[in-house]
Amino acid sequence: MNPANYIILSAILFSLGAIGVLVRRNAIIVFMSVELMLNAANLAFVAFARMNGNLDGQVAAFFVMVVAAAEVVVGLAIIVTIFRSRRSASIDEPNLLKY
């Protein structure tokens, strides 16, 4: 098996995450799709680290995880705040910044 298969798997997961971001309306599900995309990127990092024979890819994946965690924290806090005032978790709801 070609080690590139891992990369192909990463690409497929990434595209599925992109579809999830664009098609779903619930803010939490959109967020989870973003997490899926980040995970796909992590998989690609790890596979390349193995292919290249050094651990830099794994360190990069590590940092991605840390940043993703911080992002989730803040993002969910924002969703909660919006939900408190608007009583809705749809991302189509706040659409006032328009023409």
Partner: peptide, 16 residues
């Protein structure tokens, strides 16, 4: 200016 629809998803679509 009609492209500024206010929907985050359409912006995300153009980003993609």
């Amino acid at each position: 200016r009609r492209t500024q629809s206010g929907f985050a998803r359409s912006y995300a679509l153009s980003m993609l």
